[in-house]
Design a protein around this nucleic acid. Structure first.
Lengths: 121, 121
DNA sequence: ATTAACTATACAGTATACTTCATACTTGTT
DNA sequence: AACAAGTATGAAGTATACTGTATAGTTAAT
C-alpha cells in the first residue's frame, strides 16, 4: 500500500492528475481505519495496473469515459458477467478499428516520404 | 472544386469543424477571382484527402498540432526536403509506439475477458 | 418577387482533461 | 521547536477542440 506521491512516481502520472482520475471514478484508494491522526489515502497494486492501462488507452485516443467503461467492466462487482463481456468485446472491435486507422496513417506517411524523396528540387 | 457544404458531406466532418480547421491552418480553400458577387470559398480534392487523414490521425490520438506538423511537411513548399523527412520519420516512430500500446491494450482486455469467463459466479 | 437554403464572419459557449492556487493539517528531520 | 515536505479539499483557471449563435449577404427554386 502506497501513498499518492509514490504512486505518482511509479506511474509518472502527476499527483493532480491522479486525484482528478479518482474524482472521475477511474481509480479509488482507501484510508486505513487504524490510522486516526490523518485521512491519508493508500493505493494498492491494482491501482498501478489501472493507471498504466489508462496511460496506454489514452495514448491511442480513448477518452476517459471510454476507459472508465472498461475499468468498470474489469473491476466492478455490481456488473453482470454478460454485461462486462459485452462492453469488452465492443472495445476490442474499436481497437481493431484503430489498428486499421493507424496502419492507414502509417502508409500515408510512408508514401509521403517516398514522394518527397523522389521529388526534384 | 466544391463548396464547404459538399466538402462536409463527402467527409462527414461538420461545416463548423472544417472552418475551425481552416482557422487553425490545417486546410485552406480559395476564392475564385472570376466570381465577384460573393466570397465563397472553394476546396479541391487535396483538401478531401487532408480531411480524411485528419480524421484517422485524430482517431488514433494525435492532436491537431501534431497533425498540422505532418500536413505542413506534406504540402508546404517553404519547408526543406530534409526537414520534412525528419518530421515524418519522427511521426512513423510515434505510430509504432502507438501500435505497441494498442496491442498492449488489446491483450489486457483479452486477458480480462478470459478471467471473467472463467470466473465462478 | 419571395423564400428556403447556403455562405461568411465574429464571437460566445461547451466538453474534456487537466493544472494551479489557496488553505489547512500532518509527518519526518534537524 | 522549527521547518521542509507531504497530504486533503475545494474552487478557479487553462488548453484543446470544437459547437452554437447572431448577423448579414448570396443563390436557387417556385
Amino acid at each position: 500500500m502506497k501513498l499518492i506521491n509514490q504512486l505518482s512516481k511509479e506511474t509518472g502520472i502527476p499527483i493532480g492528475t491522479i486525484r482528478f482520475y479518482e474524482k472521475s471514478g477511474l481509480v479509488k484508494g482507501q484510508t486505513k481505519k487504524e490510522v486516526t491522526t490523518n485521512n491519508y489515502v493508500y493505493y494498492d497494486e491494482e491501482t498501478v495496473e489501472k493507471l498504466r492501462f489508462i496511460q496506454m488507452a489514452k495514448a491511442v485516443g480513448f477518452t476517459l469515459s471510454e476507459i472508465k467503461e472498461v475499468v468498470d467492466a474489469w473491476y466492478k462487482k455490481q456488473i453482470s458477467k454478460v454485461a462486462k463481456i459485452e462492453v469488452l468485446n465492443k472495445k476490442l472491435l474499436q481497437i481493431d478499428e484503430k489498428m486499421k486507422e493507424l496502419k492507414a496513417v502509417k502508409k500515408q506517411i510512408a508514401v509521403c516520404i517516398y514522394n518527397i524523396e523522389s521529388a526534384v528540387d
